[in-house]
Design a protein around this nucleic acid. Structure first.
Lengths: 335, 335
DNA sequence: AAAGAGGCTGAAAACGATTTCAACAACTGG
DNA sequence: CCAGTTGTTGAAATCGTTTTCAGCCTCTTT
């Protein structure tokens, strides 16, 4: 049925060991190498990766565990990780936890059973604390989310500074009553909230922060309730792309306009933010750098398991658009 | 170092065979089963999936090969496939070809080496023709893209009818000079174009179709050139989410408004299409049904390899919004 | 010319599970 | 009471590779 290395060996009239060596670029005479290659082609041989991994005790595979693959932030990071992994000759197993701790546990278990060489991981807040105690037989690099105490390598955005940047910008545009919506599932939500609150106080303003489940609907409902009760703030900071969309939806449904009725700023420079209303002011995360750096940290950790733990903090870029600008200086079209 | 089934067996004072049976739910006395479970817990044993797959000759894994994971259509389909696979006790390997035939070949080769039990696959137009001749040692279910002749199972949108629906709608709104932008990498582009042209002729109109590379930039450039040369049509049909975004971007840059300067209709009901300008009229694909059906076809194919080939054609839903409506009947807000 | 080094090669032993097969015990039915 | 059945168990074979080890040949060095 299926053709194994023995079949190739038989056809090439050499031993299986020689076939293995020839394919791996080992020390084999040119003559035999040619015979092996011919036999491989003739038989259509494909090595069995399970057997290879079993014997060589090296899966050449890393796990990438993200919280939500439909979030463009994570797809962008994934692409960067995969490109980098590919260059290093590694395969990637992509897992999607839906911010669900049960799924996280299941996937971490799976990673152990797959004997991956390492994992890049965006954990929920519920799980990140437990990572220190539990120890895995592979190194972990955290992305996007990391607490202060966990001993893992990590690469994250400077969430504190980014949230403060948004507050400063809104303040400079004359906004004073600035609300904030933050995700309750991740450490990023907490950090961004702290940055927001700290900056607000610096300006002598009263923070008005809400923690929400990470979904479009949660943010939409919250914003809608403002309009219903007539208690809307002057401006809002949305802690991720989902919340941004929820706020914009609620405004649309209530017939409100940006920035007149509500100024909107948020995180994640997804392509649609440029097109909604007068364009949304956002913090752009260096998604490629995040993915690349995470892969790099992982490779270096594999080299030296005992090196000290490293946490790389990357800065965000503030992209200012019409949704927060009182006087229109942008080139916003009328579409 | 790492704990194997032998270690568990030794600790439980039984044979490795008994451990294997106990974990697989085989015929083992309650007494020994308890001892095994205790030993598993004590040792922290995790089965080695490579070894399991090698011996049992069943990877319990399917491949999912998509053209562009950053396209929300494919992420949505992926989620549906994964949910369904999970229910069936199968793992999913997700691969991203970037519409690149070389990557397609590489991943198909990888699937053979992983000994997957089946593959769900959205091929490029360049590759779909070759699939008939080449034969793999796993069944393939095509999604989104399939030609008429390939002998593979498939589940696709009724592209012909969907494109015609858009033409009819635009015609009913009084538009006559209707251009079309179609993807040159997939069979869907071709089918949608045919549906567009056929419907146009039915109304006595002259089709004006362009084939483009599947990127935002390509569509943006094309639309921009219309505005620069003053040769813009009255309406445009964009064959996918990327083209839609390109057109909207070009309109914004040129200061044009929808639908006054150009009516816009397209494919893929991504969440942002609701928020751009007056809302975009789109064909919504039944993404969940596509993923679920594909998985179902695959499972049935594994049951009966000799059953006749089946192609499931699903209908799209036309979501009408402000971007194509002359008199505003929609509830479009001012945001 | 003998000894040592170095390069290829094949036989055989892993890797860690599952599965076959035979052994054994305990019943059942005649 | 004996043959046959059923249900658990362990020894050993097996899956398809890689890797170790030893052997052989050739070439260099003294």
């Amino acid at each position: 049925m299926t053709v194994s290395i023995k079949d190739v060996a038989a056809m090439a009239q050499v031993s299986p060991a020689t076939v293995s060596r020839a394919l791996a670029g080992g020390p084999v005479s040119a003559e035999l190498r040619a015979k092996v290659e011919a036999a491989v082609k003739a038989t259509g041989y494909r090595p069995n990766l399970s057997a290879r991994r079993l014997r060589s005790r090296d899966s050449q595979t890393i796990g990438l565990i993200v919280a939500d693959i439909s979030n463009p932030f994570f797809t962008a990071v994934s692409r960067a990780v995969e490109d980098e992994a590919y260059k290093a000759g590694l395969r990637v197993i992509l897992c999607n936890t839906d911010e669900n701790p049960d799924k996280e546990e299941m996937y971490l278990k799976l990673m152990e059973e797959e004997r991956v060489t390492g994992v890049i991981y965006a954990p929920t807040r519920a799980t990140v604390g437990k990572l220190t105690r539990q120890s895995f037989n592979f190194p972990i690099v955290l992305i996007d989310r990391a607490d202060a105490v966990s001993g893992q390598d990590a690469v994250v955005l400077d969430n504190f500074a980014a949230a403060a940047m948004l507050v400063e910008h809104l303040h400079s545009q004359g906004y004073r009553r600035i609300a904030g919506l933050f995700g309750n599932a991740s450490t990023t939500g907490v950090e961004r909230r702290t940055g927001y609150e700290e900056a607000m106080r610096r300006f002598g303003l009263t923070p008005q922060a809400r923690f929400l489940a990470p979904s479009i609907e949660a943010a939409e409902k919250e914003a809608a309730s403002w309009f219903n009760s007539g208690s809307a703030p002057e401006a809002v900071i949305a802690s991720n792309g989902l919340f941004l969309m929820g706020v914009v939806r609620a405004m649309r449904a209530a017939g409100k306009s940006m920035p007149r009725d509500l100024a909107v700023a948020g995180f994640d420079n997804e392509s649609w933010t440029e097109l909604a209303g007068p364009g949304l002011t956002v913090i752009e995360q260096p998604v490629n750098a995040i993915g690349r750096t995470a892969m790099q940290l992982l490779l270096e950790r594999l080299e030296d398991p005992d090196a000290p733990r490293r946490k790389v903090v990357l800065g965000g870029r503030c992209v200012i658009r019409g949704s927060t600008q009182t006087q229109q200086t942008s080139t916003a079209g009328a579409a």
